[in-house]
Simulated scan of single mutants.
Amino acid sequence: MKVLDVLLVGEFGLGHQNHQRDMYAPAFESHPGFRVTGRVEADDPLDRADVVSVCVPYERRVEVVTRALRAGKHVLVDKPMALTSDECAQIAEVAAGTGLVCLPAHHQRFQPAVRVAREAIAAGRVGLPWNVQADFLVAGGGEVWPLGELLNFAPYATDAIHAMTGLPVTAVYATGGARFQDGPEDLVTLCLTHERGMTSTVVAGRTPATPGSGGLSLHRYRVAGSHGTLLADANRPAARVLSTAGAPRGTWAGPSTVDRMLTELHAAVVGGRPAELGPADAVAALRVVESARRALASGQVEEVLS
């Protein structure tokens, strides 16, 4: 396997998050296709690398990602790629011009259950999908993300639905708010209309910790089609470990979603092909979030702008 050199750029994270330190760095270091060559900050030179992993503050995100692309580097970008769809679109334009891989870290679409569901839908095993019900709930896990769980968690589920069905969202109705903790919204419900008349409902957010659970407590999709129904539970197969050391933790019998995402990144770079996940997916996810925010404020169905 060809080994690609990786430069880790920044360790920015809002609230308790540090995805570079806790997720990407360990995954790159353990993956046989990558070698971490250094850790730098946003203003440092982006050399000694084939790939850069970007976790810089949002006000520097477009600048640093586009600079890396123009320097000939493939890029992994922490999720959300940027705070607005317009900023994501700026990155998408530069990435398209360079032909390099620019992969937003929507790693939950690489869950094995999501992949199996995608293949089953593509094979026509449920006929034409007409509705998807999705749950993405984290039990406990600290304070609510400072910018709200609509932006933090909901894009994982909407991106997975898009990956499974290939049908973009055209309109959004949303409810939710600060239900369990003070601060920004911690729980949202999105009622989505997709192209070709498909609908979906996404419940996403953070709930109070409950006995015997911790971390990602629900991650599942129920796909209803013209000729069948599919239930994809992304928390299986897994073993739940209980101990006196802390909250229960789920242990997967196989590569993590981040490991699988890096495998796709490696295959795209080495194969000289587009990755299955790119800036356009980040644009789509942020447009849904922006429409949902308008819907929360207006109490009306809001179209997804293109």
Rank of each mutant, 00 (worst) to 15 (best):
Y221T: 11
S291Q: 00
G141W: 09
R21W: 01
N235C: 10
E29V: 14
V40A: 07
F153C: 12
R48P: 07
L7W: 05
V54H: 07
A160E: 10
C88K: 01
V270W: 05
G142I: 00
A122D: 11
E11P: 00
M261R: 03
D50L: 07
L103R: 04
L14S: 06
H162G: 10
A267G: 07
P112K: 04
A247Q: 07
L150T: 08
A209V: 14
L4S: 10
L277D: 02
R39Y: 12
Q181N: 08
D43W: 07
L83I: 04
A247V: 15
H106R: 04
D78W: 02
A89P: 06
T257D: 13
V304H: 10
A204D: 08
G212M: 01
A139R: 15
L265R: 07
I121S: 02
G72T: 05
P211K: 05
R179I: 13
G183S: 03
G72P: 04
A239Y: 11
R115E: 14
V188Q: 06
S217V: 11
P57Y: 08
F34S: 03
G215L: 03
Q17K: 14
R60Q: 13
P80M: 09
A113T: 06
Q111R: 07
T189S: 14
T257L: 00
A268S: 13
H219C: 15
L190T: 06
P237H: 00
L305W: 02
A123H: 03
G212H: 06
T257Y: 01
A154R: 07
N18Q: 14
G177M: 05
H106M: 15
A27S: 15
G272N: 05
G205M: 13
A92M: 04
D86G: 10
G250P: 04
A82I: 00
A82F: 00
P129E: 06
H194K: 07
C102G: 03
L4F: 12
